[in-house]
């Protein structure tokens, strides 16, 4: 099957697809989250040393991974926006930032509520925690920068540059537990080594991560639809959407 990717890069043809994919991934996310929660809260056994406090891992790890992945995806769209000067790439980057910020905030929040019972503190200036806090500030900075620039095309370029410069923080977060010996433990899941946890725990984390991916895709596509309507207002094609929407098709 041949897909004309350049055609897809135009907001006109992307808009209806975004709506359909958003609902599909949203439904998938709900199914996966339901299954993941059953594993996380009922099937996975109580941890021998941490008791049930460890169950926070099923929220914490997917949120922290998503916070980093979303940043990298946003940086890629930003690079595309700068390199090819495509409107939709910049809109994708714009749509990813709020969800990335929420994931980073959630990673920090759940980490605090996991740290308190296991390390005895809600917060420490540990390398991984501090670099994740910087990630949150980068997201907030990009959102604030956009809202401070009137012309959307100039805002696109400024935000893209900031997103690309900030991408250096992602490997710092990832390797922080190896480079510095502070509070946060190292990785429990590796592609190359046997998992250091029960199979059901690992399964729970992977299902919840898949759910977080699907949720992110769904909510970001819905947001990019809103952004397309906001930004392409002058374009004539949008007005035909009004009728589609009235019929419940867009």
């Amino acid at each position: 099957m041949l897909i004309n990717w350049f055609r897809l890069s135009s907001p006109v043809s992307f808009y209806p697809l975004a709506g359909a994919w958003s609902y599909a991934f949203g439904a998938l996310a709900a199914l996966l989250a339901g299954a993941g929660l059953v594993v996380a809260l009922w099937i996975a056994p109580t941890d021998a040393t941490q008791g049930d406090a460890y169950r926070i891992i099923f929220i914490h790890v997917p949120a922290a991974w998503m916070a980093m992945f979303i940043y990298l995806v946003m940086a890629c769209w930003s690079a595309a926006a700068l390199g090819f000067n495509t409107r939709l790439s910049a809109m994708m980057a714009q749509a990813l930032a709020p969800t990335g910020a929420l994931m980073a905030a959630l990673a920090l929040w759940t980490g605090a509520f996991w740290g308190r019972p296991t390390w005895g503190t809600y917060w420490a200036w540990d390398a991984r925690m501090t670099s994740t806090l910087i990630l949150l500030f980068l997201y907030l900075g990009i959102i604030a920068l956009r809202s401070s620039i009137e012309d959307p095309r100039r805002a696109d370029r400024a935000c893209a540059v900031l997103a690309l410069v900030g991408a250096v923080n992602v490997p710092i977060i990832y390797f922080s537990v190896q480079w510095w010996n502070t509070l946060h433990q190292g990785s429990s899941i590796s592609l190359t080594a046997a998992p250091k946890m029960a199979m059901t725990m690992l399964a729970g984390i992977l299902i919840m991560t898949a759910a977080a991916w699907c949720y992110t895709i769904a909510v970001v596509l819905a947001r990019v639809q809103a952004i397309i309507v906001e930004r392409e207002r002058g374009a004539g094609w949008l007005e035909s959407l009004i009728d589609l929407r009235a019929e419940g098709r867009a």
Partner: peptide
């Protein structure tokens, strides 16, 4: 009761649900 960790576990899960 989450084995005595109710406050921590439900604050984490609750925040996630609220965020979504």
């Amino acid at each position: 009761a989450m084995g005595g960790y109710a406050w921590y576990v439900w604050m984490a899960y609750g925040a996630a649900a609220l965020t979504i």
